[in-house]
Design a protein around this nucleic acid. Structure first.
Length: 1036
RNA sequence: GGGCGAUUAGCUCAGUUGGUUAGAGCGCCACGUUGACAUCGUGGAGGUCAGAGAUUCGAGUUCUCUAUCGCCCACCA
């Protein structure tokens, strides 16, 4: 009737449809139940999900399913993120590869249209992956960070911040990607060490006075930037600077381990010499700077000032530093401090612009060569050192970054950051594991303003219209006109002017709405919209409330905000979590969630993060197809410990013979690999279309899920067994006190397990919850309870009560396992409902149509029974002892062995009802039990001192004397070793006098017990030896 | 340079406030299986808890240092 393997593919498809039809995961804002909300960390629409997302979403689903069952009105808000740069870069790359076009060939509108198509395709794929994993999101509410609802939240937020003057425009250095022609954020920059040079130049001093140097020497790794130099800096107090470095070095010397001291000493010595030789000239330069002396910038023939600034480090290079404010972050700061002009010498494409004089039009490498050559011919070139240089690269295009001065919009972070820090410091928002709080607080405490402009086409367009380079008069008129429009559209237009840009003025208008009429009115005044879009994180930061309809006061927002828990990965604690907190506080005055859980990161077998480009990314769908969705989820949940990384060795599954081949650094980099089993070749790379490839691609999977798949099957088969014995089921009320010991043991254990699992899930201890469930289901429910139930189910006297208890046990187990393994539990639940629609101990009740909507078990503390658990442990110990003896004697399972159990009268009473079960569990027939049993003629003896019980197994028909002797000798060795350890400990005067009394007493008792055991074992051994030698002489 | 984390069986990981000779799953070995389950059962082998030191009667567990690996942040004329 019921198949002996769980067909997860068919079941999943059917269950998903039934859950949908019943609206199981739909959240009702008008519900009376308390709310529980999770917003999904929206996956980027850049590509498909991998196992990292698999873990993240599995954990969220476990929490949401458990809370749903526990009586909350749960909302799991799904959606995806437009991921500005990443998505645009992917689409542009394809455009280049497939059509050899750039975005400029297409134009803004057409490119954005293409990206929408891409988004539709991947959003569908991502949501499909989540669905197949069983994620119980409220799909009807699916949002996208760029959809109209989110767009309105972005507009409202931007308008608000602009009105509060928390958004401002400034010229700032950006990391310019000359290939993509866009600014990239610091987070999207990585450093790469390249071999480079350190060029020394001499800049002539203009009209040196007698005694003054004719040249000032500077050094640079980027010669072409000298075209934009606007100063040379020297330290304002070189002597003090030398002192500070000297002090730092001496401290280092004191702290350094002995073997490093010589190196530090020589550094100190070098510094002293340097000071001796350079201090005077640096102080002279400093004085010249104070005197307003200037240098002549070679090639450009431009006078530039000598300035005093602490950025110039006397201990480095020549002690002087050229200042290029428009192309270096530190120089930019100097430029600000010293009020220097900022000359941008680059075009967006990375060529030199008209500010670069005769070098105009040259790309950077050529300009660099030309500058060096020209300086050499002017005899202004000094030494050229070889040097390794850390060069910033764009993570997107993998090309070098050029620091570049551009107009950018910023969010002032001071107060916002403080509010987000307070929320965590005072505990309104908790972060688990707690160690991640530090990073969050440290990052926010810098309170660096947030640059939100991105020179992209894919994203929320900045809702600012501006006119720049106006004279004061024009600006005033424009302000008046714009203000008039603002008055006509109250609350929708905010006008500001700005005179920071040199002598010219600018007018900025922020529009709250994108009504065409309003836009037209503003554009009619000659204002144009900023071409840039907002940083992706700006819209992500609003996610917990934008998805609920804010700024509209929707029923959803009222019911489900603030949300409850956020589960995410550690790399976006600052970029995302912190910003959600501060935006939630700004927009609603309330924190967005009260608990944040950071889960570990999944690495491959080589300890590297998974990614498509490395080829080690595992698609959850591949795992689902091989092992099933429940196995995927259980396998992932048991990895979610408090550690920060977990390793998941991955394998290729040969597409020809399905053999798994370990992925290694070597085969990963090869395009094709021969299968170790069948010899046929498969491809290891992702291809756009498999048909195009000569070789079939091997899916990447991991056998880590095998255990989980086996567990699903175990549960399925145990359920199958139960249901095969539920015919003619009749539910009855049960007086627990009248139940047999094994029933009460099961109920007691269920109470404990329920407590443990509930506690663990609430604390985000997913691995612990999984472990507890696995052990209980397999080792207790299956291996003991079901085995014991077998004979009882065929006993007419006991059948009905056993059916009721076992149905209840399965029922509770299904509920507890449901959040982790929704499909198999729901499937079994359906079968069980047909057989036992009304069930439960002590009172049967009607059960819910879906386990997904069933009530989460409440630990029944009345069922706790320490005595019975102990009694059962004793029984289990006896079973285990019999099994060991049987195994050492190689006794076939079909053969029953007679046993005798010596125990006191009380134990006898407890064990008596269970004697029948020794047959099912240990293949043993209880011959006698009680205080006075006698050993068998051919006897194997095991002592269980913990309970004062002796086990005797009759080996008459089976005896293998050598094996028995080996068993006893091994036991002898083990006990002797333990005794030695204890005696050593107890003979230690310090231990006896200082350790707590109860510990010492415990040790003494343990020692006594061991000694008794040893005597027994040794006497058994002696008997055996006598017997053996007797037999030997007989044979002889 | 600053910070965080990891190092326990061949592999992947547990190990509560310090207290019997350190556990699980997989893999390995032996035996077994017609009755829910070979996606199974029973038993076994396998560990100087990265290294050194300190605290303690007692350290996988606390502290210091070292090594290796990983991540985050900052900086580098």
């Amino acid at each position: 009737m019921i198949p002996n393997r769980f067909d997860h593919a068919t079941a999943a498809e059917e269950l998903l449809a039934r859950w949908d039809a019943a609206g199981c995961s739909h959240a009702d804002p008008s519900s009376d139940k308390p709310p529980f909300t999770i917003v999904i960390p929206p996956p980027n629409v850049t590509g498909a999900l991998h196992l990292g997302h698999g873990l993240n979403n599995t954990l969220q689903d476990i929490v949401i399913r458990q809370k749903r069952m526990a009586g909350y009105e749960t909302l799991w808000m799904p959606g995806t993120d437009h991921a500005g740069i990443a998505t645009q870069a992917v689409v542009e790359r394809r455009l280049k590869e497939q059509e050899n076009k750039t975005r400029h060939d297409l134009g803004r509108e057409a490119l954005v249209k293409r990206i929408w198509q891409w988004k539709d395709q991947y959003e569908g794929r991502i949501l499909g992956q989540l669905r197949r994993m069983g994620c119980s999101c409220d799909w009807q509410r699916t949002r996208f960070t760029l959809d109209d609802t989110c767009a309105d939240a972005v507009r409202a937020t931007f308008f608000d911040l602009f009105t509060k003057r928390l958004i401002y425009r400034g010229k700032r250095l950006v990391n310019w990607d000359t290939f993509l022609q866009t600014a990239v954020s610091d987070d999207e920059v990585f450093n790469e060490t390249k071999k480079g040079h350190f060029w020394h130049f001499r800049y002539p001093v203009i009209d040196p006075k007698p005694g003054e140097p004719e040249f000032v020497e500077i050094a640079t790794t980027r010669p072409e930037t000298m075209l934009g130099d606007t100063a040379v800096a020297v330290h304002p107090n070189p002597a003090k600077a030398f002192d500070a470095v000297d002090k730092a070095l001496r401290q280092k010397l004191a702290d350094a381990p002995e073997k490093e001291k010589p190196a530090v000493r020589s550094q100190i010595k070098a510094l002293e010499e340097r000071r001796k030789s350079m201090l005077a000239s640096l102080e002279q330069l400093r004085d010249m700077a104070a005197d307003g002396r200037r240098l002549r910038l070679p090639l450009m023939d431009r006078p530039i000032p000598l300035v005093a600034d602490e950025w110039a480090k006397p201990e480095l290079g020549s002690g002087c530093v050229k200042i290029t404010p428009a192309h270096d972050p530190n120089d930019y700061d100097v430029g600000k401090r010293c009020d220097l002009p900022m000359i941008n010498i680059l075009n967006p494409d990375g060529t030199i612009n008209s500010e670069g004089g005769k070098y105009e039009g040259l790309p950077i490498p050529k300009a660099r060569k030309a500058v060096v050559a020209d300086l050499e011919s002017l005899e202004l070139l000094g030494e050229i050192e070889d040097r390794d240089i850390e060069l910033p690269h764009s993570d997107r295009s993998k090309t070098p970054i050029e620091p570049y001065l551009a107009d950018q919009w910023f969010v002032a972070m001071d107060e916002l950051a403080q509010s987000a820090m307070d929320a965590v410091s005072d505990g309104r928002v908790s972060i688990t594991p707690a160690r991640y709080q530090k990073g969050y607080l440290d990052w926010l405490s810098e309170k660096r303003d947030w640059p939100v402009s991105r020179q992209l086409w894919w994203g929320h367009r900045i809702p600012i219209w501006s006119a720049t380079n106006l004279d004061a008069d024009a600006a005033k008129k424009l302000m008046e006109a714009a203000t008039e429009v603002a008055n006509e559209h109250a609350g929708l237009v905010q006008v500001q002017s700005d005179a920071s840009d040199g002598d010219t003025c600018a007018v900025f208008v922020c529009l709250r709405s994108d009504e065409p009429e309003l836009t037209a009115a503003i554009e009619a005044l000659g204002l144009t919209q900023d071409p840039d879009v907002l940083d992706t994180w700006f819209s992500s930061a609003l996610w917990p409330h934008s998805t609920l309809g804010w700024p509209q006061q929707t029923p959803e927002l009222k019911k489900f905000y603030p949300t409850s828990s956020l589960l995410t990965s550690r790399d976006i604690i600052t970029l995302w979590v912190a910003r959600m907190v501060l935006m939630g506080l700004n927009n609603l005055g309330e924190i967005p969630f009260d608990r944040v859980y950071i889960h570990p990161k999944i690495l491959d077998g080589l300890g590297e993060t998974m990614s498509k480009s490395k080829g080690n990314g595992v698609d959850p769908i591949d795992v689902i197809e091989k092992f099933g969705p429940d196995a995927l989820r259980f396998g992932l949940a048991r990895l979610a410990t408090e550690t920060q990384d977990v390793r998941m060795p991955v394998q290729y599954e040969c597409p020809h013979c399905e053999k798994l081949i370990d992925q290694t650094k070597k085969n990963r980099s090869l395009p094709t690999v021969p299968c170790a089993a069948c010899g046929q070749v498969f491809s290891t790379q992702w291809a756009e279309t498999d048909e195009d490839k000569a070789h079939k691609r091997a899916p990447v999977v991991s056998e880590r899920f095998e255990t989980a798949r086996n567990f699903v099957n175990k549960l399925w088969n145990a359920s199958r067994f139960v249901m095969m014995h539920l015919d003619e089921f009749e539910s009855t009320s049960i007086d627990v006190a009248t139940l047999q010991i094994e029933d009460r043991w099961l109920l007691s254990r269920l109470a404990t397990v329920t407590e443990e699992v509930t506690f663990a899930i609430d604390r985000f201890q997913f691995a612990e919850a999984s472990r507890v469930l696995y052990n209980f289901a397999w080792d207790e429910f299956c291996s003991f309870y079901v085995e014991i139930a077998k004979p009882r189910l065929s006993d007419p006297e006991q059948r009905q009560v056993t059916q009721n208890v076992i149905a209840h046990g399965l029922d509770q187990l299904l509920r507890l396992l449901h959040p982790v393994m929704p499909f198999v539990t729901e499937s079994v639940w359906g079968y069980l409902a047909d057989l036992a629609p009304k069930r439960g101990v002590p009172e049967p009740v009607d059960t819910e149509p879906f386990v997904m909507q069933a009530v989460w078990p409440k630990a029944n503390t009345d069922h706790h029974d320490a005595k019975i658990e102990r009694q059962f442990a004793e029984f289990q110990a006896l079973v285990s002892a019999i099994r060991k003896i049987r195994a050492s004697q190689n006794i076939a399972q079909r053969d029953n062995v007679p046993i005798a159990i010596r125990c006191d009268a009380a134990t006898h009473d407890l064990l008596k009802p269970m004697t029948a079960y020794f047959a099912a569990l240990a293949g043993a027939q209880v011959h006698s039990i009680g205080p006075d049993v006698i050993a068998f003629e051919t006897d194997a003896h095991a002592a269980l001192p913990e309970w004062d019980v002796d086990l005797h197994v009759d080996l008459e028909q089976f005896i293998d004397l050598d094996a028995e002797r080996a068993r006893l000798e091994k036991l002898d060795g083990q006990i002797t070793g333990q005794i030695a350890g204890k005696e050593k400990k107890l003979s230690n005067e310090n231990f006896v006098s200082r350790a707590p009394k109860e510990i010492v007493q415990q040790e003494r008792e343990a020692l006594e017990s061991l000694k008794t055991q040893l005597i027994t074992v040794q006497s058994d051994l002696a008997k055996l030896r006598t017997k053996q030698s007797a037999e030997a002489s007989e044979t002889a």
